[in-house]
Amino acid sequence: MQITVTVNGQPYTGDVEPRLLLVHFLRDGLGLTGTHWGCDTSNCGACVVHVDGTPVKSCTALAVMCDGHEVTTVEGLERDGDLDAVQKGFAECHGLQCGFCTPGMMLTARWLLDRDPDPDEARIREAVSGQLCRCTGYENIVRAVRWAARHEAARAGAGTEARAGTGDGAAGGTREGTGP
């Protein structure tokens, strides 16, 4: 089947087998190997990507289901050489060890912060509860997301002040709606 999928802002058109999983389309078709595969059964979340801004387990979605949709992978988190606050938070707080769950964890964290810029520990734990990490015991993942939230808030505060002078009233600190 011919599909057109926008991945990290770049449209891709091509023929795929109807049964091709989204994770394999991304990894093998587009060479975006930052999205990992871990379990087949939607339990581990190593394969989480955003489809139209919502976290989706790409091992349980078909590539053809994404025809006409926008996909964001871990490779799309960094913008113009600037790491996302979530990426920085994971490195700052030792939120990763082997790095295998990390892309999926960061994408879920990004989604959470887009909706709740100041999540408490319980909210963060709930948000990543559909994903497994075998290394960190989750402690530093929680800290990493809190770090990202605080830094985005600080940056948004600074940004709002700066923008106040120019009359730009757009909310800072969230990327909801900006889309890939």
């Binding site: 190997t33 930052g34 490779e75 988190l77 790491l83 920085k88 994971f90 490195a91 990763l96 790095g99």
Partner: peptide, 11 residues
């Protein structure tokens, strides 16, 4: 971490 947080690990 520089490579892992960018999805640039090589498994």
């Amino acid at each position: 971490d520089a490579r892992f947080i960018r999805g640039r690990g090589n498994y």
